[in-house]
Simulated scan of single mutants.
Amino acid sequence: MVSAVFHTPLEASASPDPRVATKTIAPNDHPTLTSAPKPLKNPAPAPRAPFDWRGLWLRVLPPVLGLGLLVLVWELVAMKNSNGFPTPADTLRQAVEVFSDPFYSKGPNDQGVGWNVLSSLKRVALGFGLAALVGIPAGFLIGRFTFLSRMFNPLISLLRPVSPLAWLPIGLLVFKGANPAAIWTIFICSIWPMVINTAVGVQRVPSDYMNVARVLNLSEWKIITRILFPAVLPYMLTGVRLAVGTAWLVIVAAEMLTGGVGIGFWVWDEWNNLNVKNIIIAIFVIGIVGLVLEFALIKLATAFTFEEVKS
């Protein structure tokens, strides 16, 4: 039986093995063993990648061209229209004046655009919050139990396509007030995306997860909190994002009919005053606020969803 013993040079010099024959190596025999290693030179820094001007150009140019096309069409419409349709330059000057004091208040029906936007957002928050409190648990129950799914699917299919403005007279009749009627309209129109998306998410949970829950004899509460909720969260957040967009669309139409302070009422009031420039400003304000809400919820959704659904 042959064994090989490996020693470092320090170990060999400190405790030589008497069974192994040693030989003294002269310095001249192997110069490379005795010469000190040459210090390594500092590696050259990696060349810095050039700035991607082409990628920046492709990201910036298309939006700029799109906005330029919008302004061009707007200018052509204003030139061809003889009814005093405002040009982009006139609207920009009016916007500077409007936003110079957005929170003025000269009575209940004459307030700045800032107060109108805040009032609309308050109604959206109330109606949307109530819809989330009802719609998300209802979606879990409908997706979890087949009996409830068969019971409520025909009702959802019947009521979901109804126009938002068709619900407004029902709210006025029941709640006897414009503000609760607008909140009711937001509630009934924004509840469906959350119910449907949450129920679909529950139904698409892999059956292996539920089989493991049955084997472990988990309670229904643990099944919902430990299995269903993490798996359904991406679908639920998608429903929330769609519901917020629906709520912001509905509030503008509802406020046109109910009156009071709000961005929709501001549009209608400016139309009664034949102030088309403020109407166009309101359109841009509505679009920007909706874009901000959409962007915020997309960021929230990507923070809590899996990589494959972030796109």
Rank of each mutant, 00 (worst) to 15 (best):
residue 12 A to P: 02
residue 263 I to M: 06
residue 225 T to K: 04
residue 226 R to W: 02
residue 4 A to M: 08
residue 84 G to H: 10
residue 224 I to P: 00
residue 270 E to Y: 10
residue 27 P to M: 09
residue 53 W to Q: 03
residue 260 G to I: 01
residue 263 I to D: 01
residue 61 L to P: 01
residue 208 D to H: 11
residue 176 K to S: 07
residue 40 L to D: 09
residue 173 L to W: 02
residue 257 L to M: 08
residue 259 G to V: 08
residue 272 N to F: 13
residue 245 G to R: 08
residue 40 L to H: 08
residue 278 N to D: 06
residue 240 V to D: 00
residue 117 V to H: 00
residue 144 R to E: 15
residue 68 G to E: 07
residue 147 F to S: 14
residue 84 G to Q: 09
residue 84 G to F: 13
residue 256 M to G: 12
residue 20 V to K: 02
residue 269 D to H: 13
residue 43 P to I: 08
residue 176 K to C: 03
residue 130 L to R: 04
residue 285 V to W: 07
residue 62 P to I: 06
residue 296 A to H: 10
residue 99 F to D: 10
residue 24 T to S: 14
residue 54 R to M: 02
residue 281 I to H: 02
residue 135 G to Q: 05
residue 286 I to D: 08
residue 39 P to F: 04
residue 98 V to K: 03
residue 57 W to C: 06
residue 76 L to N: 07
residue 138 A to H: 05
residue 214 R to T: 02
residue 292 V to G: 01
residue 59 R to E: 08
residue 47 P to N: 07
residue 26 A to Q: 12
residue 31 P to G: 08
residue 24 T to N: 14
residue 42 N to K: 13
residue 52 D to W: 02
residue 126 L to H: 03
residue 41 K to D: 05
residue 303 A to W: 15
residue 203 Q to G: 11
residue 250 V to F: 05
residue 203 Q to R: 14
residue 98 V to P: 06
residue 27 P to L: 05
residue 56 L to H: 02
residue 294 E to N: 13
residue 35 S to W: 04
residue 164 P to W: 01
residue 172 L to N: 00
residue 127 G to M: 12
residue 86 P to Y: 11
residue 217 N to R: 12
residue 107 G to V: 14
residue 10 L to M: 12
residue 190 S to N: 09
residue 134 V to P: 04
residue 174 V to W: 09
residue 239 G to D: 05
residue 298 I to F: 15
residue 251 I to S: 02
residue 252 V to L: 10
residue 76 L to I: 11
residue 215 V to C: 06
residue 222 K to D: 11
residue 92 L to A: 13
residue 225 T to Q: 01
residue 267 V to R: 02
residue 76 L to V: 13
residue 246 T to C: 13
residue 117 V to W: 00
residue 262 G to M: 12
residue 300 L to S: 01
residue 33 L to W: 13
residue 33 L to H: 06
residue 228 L to C: 00
residue 294 E to A: 10
residue 259 G to K: 03
residue 130 L to F: 10
residue 1 M to L: 09
residue 137 P to I: 09
residue 209 Y to A: 12
residue 67 L to N: 03
residue 299 K to S: 05
residue 5 V to M: 05
residue 121 L to S: 05
